[in-house]
Amino acid sequence: MDCSRRTLLKSACAATAAATLPISAFRLFSPAECRAETGKPGTRWIFLVDTEKCVGCGLCVKACKLENEVPYDAPVTRTWVERYVITSDGKSHIDSPMGGRDGFTSPKIDGQEINPKEITKAFFVPKLCNQCDNPPCVQVCPVGATYQTSDGVVLVDRKWCIGCGYCIMACPYGVRFFHPEYKVAEKCTFCYHRISKGETTACVQACPFEARKIGNLRDPDDPVTKIVMTQRVGVLKDEYGTKPQVFYLGLDRNVR
């Protein structure tokens, strides 16, 4: 076989470039993959948010903060509710005062009055950690303080975290923050202490409208799994290749 210096260099360059691209960068959310996951033994926690049912009462945010001892008046929260009001001029007005902790009681957005006749769509979107299958926040941790449990939940080891903040920067969804008291990275745990005991999360229990649900993707009879399999669900920022495991019903293209 003859191999000139030129072809050797060329193929070496191509191979290096190909090797640096993660395979996950080419794959988007695939129902087939989800289906392959169901039926396996064990548990893979997933979450379902129905944006049409959410009324923006914020009781989930309140319950989450009190359940998980997140400082109540600090501007940090593990879950929050965003309000989207889209007007006929195509503008979207978005707000989430205090993460929606006290609900949305005024039609004003950031002090701005909006004429109800101009509203074309308006809805609320609860957000929380997506407990990604490929969590970038875990990849960047330099000390092994954050990790994925065998049932798919990403946790932070408060004793081991050095508070460097890499994970906070790495999360494309902005769900991580710095805990003002413990001085470590903090995030939604899907109420790991509750779901491990067979209870539901504090936010799911608090929601009077069933806008939030938690389920096990590996159980084919789980009502949440059935919805994810049979209905049109969306996920946030699919193109990042993080494989988020929080699914949304009625997701709008204006939601980021």
Binding site: A63, L66, E67, N68, P135, V138, Q139, G144, A145, T146, Y147, Q148, T149, S150, L155, D157, K159, W160, T189, Y192, H193, R194, S196, K197, E199, A202, Q205, A206
Partner: peptide
């Protein structure tokens, strides 16, 4: 108990007993 516990080094490198620490957290609601 610090080591690769779970899927891979990338996602499972941690202190195993921390999982139990989180499970011990008390319910408020």
């Amino acid at each position: 108990d610090f080591g690769v516990n779970g899927r891979s080094f990338t996602y499972g490198f941690h202190r195993l007993s921390n999982v139990a620490d989180w499970q011990k957290f008390p319910d408020k609601y």
